[in-house]
């Protein structure tokens, strides 16, 4: 696990080093905001996966929301397996 944590950290440091200094020099604050908005969930989830923390899973939300509808469709078309 230590090795994975190290690799994840190195990967994110590389991503930040590649993009952030250029954006700061060119004063593109909007781009920087969008960049961090995308990077932040990626960081949270990758450490969450490595450390086995239970984070909200978007798939579970979709399953919970749409499962009744899917069942209804199967009943309607008579293809319940």
């Amino acid at each position: 696990m230590f090795f994975t944590l190290l690799l994840v950290t190195v990967a994110f440091i590389i991503i930040i080093l590649l993009e952030v200094p250029r954006l700061v020099v060119q004063k593109k604050w909007r781009d920087l905001a969008a960049f961090s908005f995308l990077l932040l969930p990626a960081i949270v989830y990758s450490y969450g996966i490595t450390l086995d923390v239970n984070l909200p899973n978007p798939t579970h939300l979709i399953i919970k929301l749409f499962d009744p509808l899917a069942l209804r469709l199967e009943q309607l078309l008579g293809t319940t397996q």
């Binding site: 991503i15 781009d31 920087l32 905001a33 899973n57 978007p58």
Partner: peptide, 27 residues
């Protein structure tokens, strides 16, 4: 959506997001 001048700075964080979501989407 965010009215940025260029999409290129977003490539790497979006890639990390795709990878993380791909791994985490199903148990």
């Amino acid at each position: 959506w965010a009215k940025l001048s260029d999409y290129k700075p977003l490539i790497l964080p979006a890639g990390a997001l795709f990878m993380v979501l791909g791994i985490y989407s199903f148990e």
